[in-house]
Simulated scan of single mutants.
Amino acid sequence: MDTKSENVVWHAHSVSRDARSEVKQHKPCVLWFTGLSGSGKSTVANAVDHLLHKRKVHTYVLDGDNVRHGLNGDLGFSDKDRVENIRRIGEVAKLFVDAGLVVSTAFISPFKADRDLVRNQLSGGEFFEVFIDTPLAVCEQRDPKGLYKKARAGEIKHFTGIDSAYEVPSSPDIHVETDGKTIEECADEVIAALEKSRIIS
């Protein structure tokens, strides 16, 4: 059954994306944090958000768990639902960019095709794939939510890194290897990359 909306016409806004960016005095973009559960995606994303806020950059963080409480509350964790989860987040992130914000998304987003789909929805230089690279053994050792323990016991199915695949980014825009680094050092790497790309000054 085709559920695509019909008779829908895109309405052009009188205030452009460039005009919004000029008011905010920085460029908009998506910081797409990807990595295994327990890798530190949300922690680093929030640390980056804090540093950007101190610089008066207009930001927002879309966190995987938080979004599943509302917008994506009807989705499970099958491969099909994971794809739809990322599709919806990509659409929301695109709206935030149109509003002139730097939006950080902290999602496992295990499939390369889904991450590329979001990238291709945005203009060049507006999407940064941020790979929070933490070894599986370290993630399991941290296990902040006890999810790996449940997955190993067979209590959780389709768990990324255990019985569901994670496709490692081959050439991320920002590669943060977290093992042996502080949260602050990881966040500083992201900020430095944004400065280099002239998203912020």
Rank of each mutant, 00 (worst) to 15 (best):
25 Q>A: 14
91 E>D: 15
60 Y>F: 15
195 E>T: 13
61 V>L: 14
124 G>K: 04
32 W>C: 02
132 I>A: 01
73 G>Y: 07
67 V>K: 07
33 F>N: 09
148 Y>M: 06
181 K>W: 01
79 D>K: 15
151 A>Q: 05
5 S>F: 10
178 T>H: 02
134 T>F: 00
81 D>W: 12
99 A>V: 01
50 H>A: 15
1 M>H: 14
6 E>P: 01
134 T>L: 00
174 I>A: 01
82 R>W: 11
199 I>F: 11
193 A>H: 07
142 R>N: 01
22 E>W: 04
154 G>W: 11
23 V>G: 00
185 E>V: 11
98 D>Q: 12
125 G>V: 07
131 F>H: 11
7 N>M: 11
90 G>Y: 09
173 D>T: 02
68 R>T: 04
22 E>P: 01
18 D>M: 08
102 V>Y: 03
24 K>A: 13
103 V>Y: 00
52 L>D: 11
75 L>G: 12
185 E>K: 10
191 I>E: 07
75 L>Y: 12
133 D>G: 00
67 V>W: 13
156 I>T: 03
87 R>M: 10
127 F>M: 05
61 V>K: 09
143 D>M: 02
127 F>T: 01
47 A>K: 07
191 I>N: 12
19 A>C: 07
111 F>T: 05
135 P>W: 02
109 S>A: 10
144 P>D: 00
183 I>Y: 06
143 D>W: 03
11 H>Y: 11
184 E>M: 07
145 K>N: 02
103 V>Q: 00
154 G>D: 12
34 T>P: 10
3 T>P: 03
126 E>S: 04
17 R>K: 14
22 E>M: 12
111 F>D: 06
43 T>R: 05
81 D>Q: 14
109 S>W: 02
188 D>L: 12
81 D>T: 11
50 H>K: 15
45 A>T: 06
108 I>R: 06
11 H>V: 05
115 R>A: 04
38 G>W: 07
127 F>L: 00
156 I>S: 04
56 K>A: 12
147 L>Y: 03
152 R>Y: 10
73 G>P: 10
1 M>N: 11
142 R>D: 00
150 K>P: 05
114 D>E: 15
166 Y>C: 00
29 C>A: 15
5 S>Q: 13
1 M>Y: 09
30 V>Y: 02
187 A>E: 08
140 E>L: 06
55 R>H: 11
91 E>A: 14
49 D>W: 04
4 K>C: 08
7 N>K: 15
160 T>P: 04
118 V>N: 10
31 L>N: 06
88 R>K: 14
110 P>M: 03
175 H>K: 04
19 A>T: 12
136 L>H: 03
183 I>K: 10
41 K>Y: 09
33 F>D: 12
68 R>W: 13
